[in-house]
């Protein structure tokens, strides 16, 4: 029983990481209709800056909870790159999707080089920050407290995004713009400003996610491209453009992967992509996606 619970928790942790990457991807696609391959780069940027911020905060002797606050604020501050990048993206809004993919993929590669220039080839870690949060005794077993914290934050982000999109005026405007941009503009919505805000919010989800997860992981040059691939499995399963879909897709991928690792490690990727194919065949728009009319 304890082993089963630990395996489920491991799967949920992975799901939390995937959700934080996929949520930004979903938000941007939902409103701007751009498949943003650079979302992995934003996650990696948050991780690199978060790792540096942690080193600084530990160096000046801040207590552990404050170190974490500094790390998350550093991740949030990275979102300043959102508006200028969105300005570049405007050049491809009305062009073929392949240009959009190419441009966002170019961002991904450029960021990878910037990480190398800024931090070198060595992976960046936060040292023992992860361990300073201790372990959580859940009765049946002990687990790293930070892993549970990451899962809790991912759930909070999912709930917060849901509330923001459903219950706030700005969220309603966002959804209206996503449904029908021309109509929204006709009733006075500034779609251009909306796009900039949405893209920046998508960047922030990625950068804060990266900063949040780096204490339990490491910032490395490969992480951007690595996560994008799995994030796409998540959005295909959940449905492109749906935040609920991102959550459901992430949980499915996380748990299926955890089960595969335990029962037949060789099938780790096979199990995930078998589900992706099944969804594409049985429900092409994904579990929470809207069928094209």
């Amino acid at each position: 029983m304890a082993a089963f619970a630990e395996i489920v928790l491991g799967g949920l942790f992975h799901a939390a990481v995937l959700f934080l990457v996929a949520a930004g991807l979903q938000l941007v696609f939902g409103v701007q209709k751009i498949v943003n391959l650079a979302c992995g780069a934003f996650y990696a940027l948050g991780a690199y800056v978060g790792a540096s911020a942690a080193k600084w905060a530990i160096g000046v002797g801040l207590p552990t909870p404050l170190v974490l606050v500094v790390v998350l604020l550093a991740g949030l501050a990275c979102a300043v790159i959102g508006p200028p990048l969105e300005r570049v993206l405007r050049t491809v809004y009305d062009r073929d999707e392949s240009f959009q993919l190419l441009l966002t993929f170019a961002f991904l590669l450029m960021f990878q080089d910037l990480f190398r220039i800024g931090w070198g080839a060595n992976p960046q870690t936060t040292g023992s920050l992860f361990l300073s949060f201790g372990t959580l005794d859940l009765g049946l077993f002990k687990t790293p407290a930070y892993n549970v914290f990451v899962i809790a934050v991912a759930i909070t982000v999912a709930a917060g995004l849901g509330w923001f999109l459903q219950r706030t005026n700005f969220g309603r405007l966002l959804r209206a713009t996503a449904e029908n941009r021309a109509m929204a503009e006709a009733v006075g919505v500034n779609a251009r400003a909306m796009f900039s805000v949405v893209f920046t919010l998508g960047v922030a989800l990625g950068t804060v996610g990266g900063a949040l997860v780096v204490p339990a992981s490491a910032a490395s040059l490969d992480m951007a491209a690595e996560l994008v691939v799995e994030a796409f499995a998540v959005v295909v399963i959940g449905g492109l453009g749906s935040i609920s879909g991102a959550l459901a897709g992430a949980v499915i991928v996380g748990l299926v992967r955890a089960a595969a690792i335990v029962f037949y490690a060789e099938a780790e990727l096979l199990a995930i992509y078998a589900i992706v194919i099944a969804v594409l065949i049985l429900r092409p728009a994904g579990l929470f996606g809207k069928e094209a009319v």
Partner: peptide
């Protein structure tokens, strides 16, 4: 147990859980 994480995979909690089990 025999675990085969993909090269470059930075998220290993599920592997640790499987080994512990």
């Amino acid at each position: 147990a025999e675990q085969w994480p993909k090269v470059g995979n930075m998220e290993v909690t599920s592997f640790v859980a499987a080994l512990k089990a």
